[in-house]
Design a protein around this nucleic acid. Structure first.
Lengths: 257, 257
DNA sequence: CGTTATCTTGACGTACATCAAATGTCGTGG
DNA sequence: CCACGACATTTGATGTACGTCAAGATAACG
């Protein structure tokens, strides 16, 4: 049913393709990669649906610190992150900030329940993303039940994450928050070839603080405490090694002191 | 297109109806009512789709205190609340509780991103709800793009609410939390004929506390403080009158002290 | 290699939790 | 109808986890 509309060609090395459609196809290659991971939108799409997606998507870059979604602005575009990472946050009038989540490779960003974004997004590291206009997404959705299904699953998953985070923010102590955070990071895309216990923290301490609802100083102290207790080790500021996973898990659930 | 398969019988008073199909239609009447409100799932459904929905739904009751969704249990059913209200919550092993939301008339409850519920739900008041098996919902979704669309919107709206709540739990002071909560309650279905400034709080103080991430005592003190300042009045424990809406809104956003 | 941002550690203050007791509310049965 | 008991709410007294302020150490960057 999908005959060769020049779908394929999916490796980085095959850049020497001739037909112009190739570029579009290439832009969607990362979606396949995301799909390999758990919750990318593209992961749920069947092969025949990808060309249409590819034809509507453009690849954009953002350097560290670039704010590419502005809370309150008209929600014209959606993004699928294909490289780097981002922080999503909301602000109060006086500048207090709550980071509501981080975006990694495969994340779908920009879902809003009104005409406007309800949060901002800023690149933590140099970033690449697929950009999709609102109208394109609507068109895709109306043509593909699979995509709709997929997006629903993504939204429901995000909702479950948000609920877990509410529990953290409302009821957990600082050490439980940090333990939970470190554990959750182990489930994020990690650089290849590194063993599971070592995790990368691309974000600043202040970002972790605003994500966990405490201050920067408290984050420092708590991470130091975990290290002193031998639960983790800190080779450098942006990496953590989990020495005692089960104890960390127990701490995260508040099972012990 | 759906002829009378003599489905349910659903109203308390009109049990003497003759044509079997009437009951089915009637059972879905409350959906129409929800639709009048903003975010009921049924609200987005076109008339021709309702009979199919009605044929798969059964009406259930729950008395005050009844836990009808158990965190961790297999997610076999979804519910659409048609009367009363409920609290949704998660627990930590040691009993700490975070209420992640309240359900009112029109709420769709039970969305889970795995085979199991990720939260519990308990009736705050005597409750009636439409119950829908997981397989029924899947069947409905596969037949109706409109329903899928609708459910996506509901999920996205819930997500936005959750994000707003994260901001509240992570960064707002107690008085800001209470002000935000009272304001949000003004947007919930209220008993007919009552003027907007008076809001009903069916839940206990302890529920509000677990929703806002503080203690019961702090809730009492803060409500009392708002009353002392003349922002609200408290005719009785389960009702609040907003005397100064703009000041309450300012407090909720942290705009002033 | 200097400049600046980020991180870490310490000293002190405070908003909220905890503990405790009085008061109010509601359902039940005498 | 009223009296009783159980439970919810309110208010007070005290403790503490975390925030705030400040200074120094380390890392990032041009």
């Amino acid at each position: 049913m999908d005959r060769g509309v020049a779908t394929a060609s999916c490796t980085e090395t095959a850049a020497a393709q001739i037909r112009p459609v190739t570029n579009a196809v290439e832009s969607l290659l990362p979606c396949w990669q995301c799909g390999a991971r758990s919750y990318g939108v593209c992961g749920g799409l069947a092969r025949p649906e990808l060309p249409r997606l590819a034809s509507l998507v453009t690849v954009a870059k953002a350097s560290r610190g670039k704010i590419f979604i502005h809370e309150g602005a008209s929600a014209e575009h959606f993004y699928i992150l294909i490289q780097g990472s981002a922080k999503l946050y909301k602000l109060l009038p006086d500048g207090r900030r709550q980071i509501i989540g981080f975006g990694y490779v495969g994340s779908f960003l920009g879902l809003a329940d009104s005409e406007n974004y309800s949060f901002s997004a800023e690149a933590i590291e140099p970033m690449r993303m697929c950009s999709l206009s609102r109208r394109s997404l609507q068109s895709l959705l109306s043509h593909s039940g699979a995509l709709q299904q997929c997006l629903l699953e993504v939204a429901i998953h995000e909702l479950a994450l948000a609920q877990e985070h509410m529990m953290l923010l409302g009821r957990k102590t600082t050490i439980e928050r940090v333990a939970s955070f470190l554990l959750s990071q182990t489930k994020c895309p990690q650089p290849r070839g590194v063993l599971p216990p070592r995790i990368r923290l691309p974000m600043a301490r202040g970002d972790i603080a605003d994500y966990l609802g405490v201050t920067l100083e408290t984050i420092c102290r708590t991470i130091a405490k975990l290290a002193k207790r031998g639960v983790i080790a800190i080779p450098n500021v942006h990496e953590v090694v989990i020495l005692d996973p089960s104890r960390l898990a127990a701490l995260a659930k508040g099972d012990c002191a």
